[in-house]
């Protein structure tokens, strides 16, 4: 079930399967808990300033409790391998965010710092929109920027903004 959550959150589940899954989710409290836990990861990722340092320790315990998939089953070896990777990847990502928030703890958060600066520092509004949209100019710019060149497809994170 955990693998399914992970697959669903990775957006790799087929629609029909997803509907079945949501039905199950409603009926099984343990699954709901797992669902909530995985979304906690997502929420934590979105709000790094609220992450406490002991979060990664708590998740380390959960990781210990996760069953280790040593050998993929012969029926669907590729998928099983992928499930295992997916769950592990989520946890590693969380550890990384914990690390990132530690980095920020050392220094005042950038947006706070900017607000405290004297008047010659301008504070930009972040790209906000009511819906998803890609910024054509950002994309057109990134074709030529050396730093975007080094970052490859990751530079699209700037030009295709989230809500």
């Amino acid at each position: 079930m955990k693998e399914k959550i992970s697959v669903l959150m990775d957006g790799e589940m087929f629609e029909d399967d997803a509907e079945l899954f949501f039905d199950k989710l409603k009926r099984h409290p343990q699954t709901s808990q797992d669902w909530a836990m995985y979304h906690l990861i997502g929420d934590a990722l979105r709000q790094p300033e609220h992450i406490h340092r002991d979060v990664s320790a708590a998740f380390h315990e959960r990781l210990q409790a996760e069953p280790t998939i040593l050998a993929p089953q012969s029926r669907a070896p590729q998928r099983m391998k992928h499930y295992a990777l997916s769950a592990a990847a989520s946890l590693m990502a969380l550890a990384l965010v914990a690390w990132m928030s530690l980095q920020i703890d050392k220094e005042p958060a950038p947006q706070l710092a900017a607000a405290q600066q004297s008047d010659n520092v301008v504070r930009p509004a972040s790209f906000q929109s009511n819906d998803y949209q890609s910024n054509d100019y950002l994309m057109a710019h990134q074709e030529f920027s050396p730093s975007a060149d080094v970052q490859g497809a990751a530079s699209y994170i700037h030009s295709v903004e989230a809500k």
Binding site: L45, L96, M100, A154
Partner: peptide
């Protein structure tokens, strides 16, 4: 999987 962070915004993307 890339984790991106800037200010309060954090995003995960597969590249």
């Amino acid at each position: 999987v890339v984790v991106y962070q800037s200010g309060g915004r954090v995003e995960m993307s597969r590249i």
